[in-house]
Computed example of a mutant assay.
Amino acid sequence: MTILNSPLPNSIRRGTASSVSVRDATKSPPPSPFASLPAIPPSYFKPLCHPLVDQVSKEVDGYFAERWNFQSPKAKEKFLATGFSRLTCLWFPKALDDRIHLACRLVTVLFLIDDILEDLLFEEGSLYYDKLIAICRGDSLPDRSVPAEYIMLLSALMRFSMGLKITPQELETVKPIEKNCAKHISVINGIYSYEELLVSKTAHEEGGAFCTSVQIMMGEMDVDAESTKRILFAMCREREFRHRMLVAQLKEESDDTMKVSSALPVYVQGLEYQVSGNEAWCSTSPRYKVAAQKNCQ
């Protein structure tokens, strides 16, 4: 005997409240006005991570854990959980094996400096930043009692992490691609760091609050934060489409009018990996996920 041929329970045959429940259960609930809103549109790019990510992360995290003056044990724990070396390995998956750890150190110190600047007023932060730039240029010597100053000396070692030699003329031809990728990275950072900014107790009004892509778009479009993020994600996907167009255009021009070195296509591919790796890290980093959870509480 099938379920369809089985007798109904007495309560339903008598038309009691149970029959009402069965009848209502067959009706579809009214559609939510937000049900059709799309999730994050998928990227055209696929991230790649450097094969030495685990080894390098352990080495670099240990290096800074020993040498950086963290404000508290909790701050050190947060640093170790964030994964700046993983970000670097996603940014530079094709870096030479003997140089990737230098890239990880550079990126890590830049993030740590960024955290320091949040505690400073705009003028103080500008002076601090200018001093670091002077050290990198060799215009002044670092104060070894200040970790950020002498660790920044490593930045010079990172300029050729992939071992690429590209002529100034070639670099000029890829400027549109570089700018397009930079805008993508900036917007994605703004999307995922928005909640971190909201819960930050050290952000100053004259600092980053009005400089994020989310905040700017909210003011321009007169929409809320979530709507703004959807708009910005769509814009980033257009950036990815534009990247492919610019790369195709560069290849066509190179074939017709000029000769380029074998390093240039590798460099352009590296830019794409930076874009995809940046979004992969931002979407999974505890640095932003914890902030988003706190903002929802």
Rank of each mutant, 00 (worst) to 15 (best):
E252Y: 10
S254M: 05
K229M: 14
S254G: 11
V214L: 05
Y150T: 07
E123I: 15
M1F: 10
T173V: 12
I166F: 02
L4G: 08
F64Y: 13
L102W: 13
L52P: 13
R86E: 14
S261C: 03
R239V: 11
V146M: 08
Q269V: 01
D130S: 15
G163E: 01
D24W: 09
Y150N: 06
V266M: 11
E66M: 09
C104V: 05
P265K: 04
P7I: 03
K289W: 04
A17I: 09
P47S: 10
M1D: 12
Y273M: 14
S43M: 02
E206H: 04
V60D: 04
A209Q: 08
I191D: 02
S213W: 02
F34E: 14
L110A: 11
P93W: 03
T257D: 14
L164I: 07
R14G: 04
I133D: 08
A95G: 08
L198E: 01
A39S: 14
M158G: 15
R13P: 08
I113G: 03
L48P: 08
H184G: 10
C49S: 13
M162C: 15
L157M: 13
A225I: 03
L132E: 08
L121W: 10
Q269Y: 07
N278Q: 03
M152T: 14
K183F: 07
E279I: 02
F64E: 01
I177V: 04
R230A: 05
I151R: 02
E118M: 00
L80D: 01
Y267D: 06
A103G: 12
L132M: 15
A225C: 01
T88Q: 14
N295W: 03
E124V: 02
S21Y: 07
P286A: 00
G62S: 02
D143K: 03
I135L: 06
M152F: 11
G83N: 04
N295Q: 06
E123A: 15
E195R: 00
S254V: 09
I3M: 15
A225M: 04
P93S: 05
S32H: 11
F111C: 07
G83I: 00
L52E: 12
R13F: 05
P33S: 10
G208N: 09
Y129R: 14
V60P: 05
I113H: 05
R237W: 12
Y150P: 01
G138L: 09
R239F: 15
C136P: 00
F45D: 07
C89N: 10
Y128P: 09
I3T: 15
I231C: 09
Y288V: 00
P147F: 01
C296G: 11
P51C: 05
Y150V: 06
A156W: 01
L102Q: 09
S276T: 04
E220C: 05
D98A: 07
Q71K: 13
E238R: 15
L90P: 02
G163M: 02
N5F: 06
L120H: 11
Q269T: 06
C104D: 10
I135P: 03
I177N: 00
S126T: 12
G277Y: 05
